[in-house]
Design a protein around this nucleic acid. Structure first.
Lengths: 107, 107
DNA sequence: TCAATCAATAGCCAGCAGGTTATCGATCAC
DNA sequence: GTGATCGATAACCTGCTGGCTATTGATTGA
């Protein structure tokens, strides 16, 4: 049972997939065809990536006739932001501890 | 030629490897033995992970006798932070554009 | 109605990534 | 000096992942 960080990191680790997500962030909603045309891979490959991005909550889809429009769900990135701040936080804490230690040694 | 984001995402995507990095962030410098004992995988596997983390600039090593101490290099996370802010930034920009459009339509 | 288009699915294949055991070099303890 | 310990490396195996082509289902337009 992978946690939220696992899913996000794994999903964004693939360059092709991340490029698709970046494009959706930059340019907003796009059809599968539009995304495929600039992805360098086949349409089924793009559909697979979009499926994984959707599972990760990073995009949502909207059906309109025979086209499917995808758009980025930016909120899904929060666990990533939380994780990095947490790591930074641990580091700060340890730094403070070191400071304290040095202060005590100084007395 | 993978860019900095590629390397970071790929390196942090593996749960075992990320757990090692998290532990180094939480608890500071650790020997390979200490890291192995709580990783659930063999010592060579841990060494391999540490090698990749080092290549990504996420950890540094310090040799002391026959032990090797590893510690987290928090600065290496900045490209990740930059990337997320950039994605958020794109989103904001598009939101502003939408706002402008609505404003112009209103006139 | 029938052909064409769009996107998803199925089925397959190749490469790689992460795991293992075995071994080696270096350092330490006795 | 010798045996034990630590960590890196070698060599290998396996499963998963990302790619492909072919096909299907749905929708559109002629």
């Amino acid at each position: 049972m992978p946690n939220a960080h696992d899913v996000l990191f794994r999903t964004l680790a693939d360059p092709t997939r991340r490029a698709i997500f970046e494009r959706l962030c930059r340019e907003g909603e796009q059809t599968v065809g539009a995304l495929t045309s600039q992805s360098g891979v086949s349409q089924p490959a793009v559909s697979k990536h979009l499926g994984l991005l959707r599972q990760a909550g990073l995009v949502r889809d909207r059906h309109e006739g025979r086209q499917t429009h995808y758009s980025a769900q930016l909120g899904a990135l929060s666990p990533l932001i939380d994780w990095t701040s947490q790591m930074a936080g641990f580091w700060e804490t340890r730094f403070d501890e070191l400071e304290d230690l040095l202060k005590r040694m100084d007395q």
